[in-house]
């Protein structure tokens, strides 16, 4: 279970302070599927980054199960991320010089999985995403929807319990977006906690719970 208690995040660039998060308290059960909504600049990505340990909070407390994440040092945060969190980004964040296969394989490298095993896992996830035949292609050679499938396959190979998706359908047309959301539902059914940032009400409605953020504060938190 993810538990945030009065979390704030202040960015400081060139002396200008931005309160990206203004006292967020939130509990997310394991296996939930949550939509985070809110206007641009309201702090959605910041929230996700803090949950995924891609950023550290300024004050407040962040716990995951028994672990007090907000007290971890940088090295431990890396380890936490490696163990628990996978990401899906709006722009897919694929390595452009690497093939689809190699991109999906990436999370397995730091996990010291044998080459044979890696091949099995990667192919399995590519198949699950329906992009097996694209394995040898480079990200620039495939469509946005296919790239996002590739990114999701990459998020899945690590077998982490939390999947964080920052506007995963934002760059896709609505038909493709729907397909991707179906995939997230499947992923959620596998028992993973899925948190999705979205602007799209239709997308949000596919989730168990919708959290609306404004000015770094939670406005609505409803099932």
């Amino acid at each position: 279970m993810i538990r945030l208690n009065n979390v704030t995040k202040i960015y400081e660039t060139q002396g200008i302070k931005t309160n990206a998060l203004n006292g967020i308290s939130l509990e997310i059960e394991d296996g939930e599927m949550i939509a985070v909504m809110g206007p641009s600049g309201s702090g959605k990505s910041t929230l996700l980054n803090i949950i995924g340990c891609m950023d550290t909070l300024t004050s407040g407390k962040y716990e995951y199960n028994e672990c007090e994440v907000s007290a971890l040092k940088q090295g431990q945060l890396n380890a936490f991320r490696k163990k628990h969190v996978s990401f899906v980004f709006q722009n897919f964040a694929l390595m452009k010089d690497y093939t689809v296969y190699e991109n999906v394989e990436l999370p397995l490298l730091p996990r010291n999985i044998s080459k044979k095993e890696r091949k099995k896992i990667v192919n399995e996830k590519l198949e699950l995403m329906g992009i097996s035949e694209l394995a040898k292609k480079f990200p620039t050679q495939i469509s946005g929807g296919q790239q996002q499938r590739c990114a999701i396959a990459r998020a899945l190979v690590a077998e982490n319990d939390i999947i964080l998706a920052d506007e995963p359908t934002g760059a896709l047309d609505s038909k493709t977006g729907d397909d991707i959301m179906e995939i997230f539902k499947q992923v959620n059914k596998m028992g993973k906690t899925v948190i999705i940032i979205t602007h799209d009400q239709k997308v949000a409605e596919k989730c168990n719970r919708i959290i609306k953020i404004e000015d770094g504060k939670i406005k609505i938190n409803a099932k």
Partner: peptide
């Protein structure tokens, strides 16, 4: 960004 992608996918410092 490649390093960002690596960090996001469990590669450590």
């Amino acid at each position: 960004n490649v390093y960002g992608i690596m960090y996001a996918n469990g590669v450590t410092r």
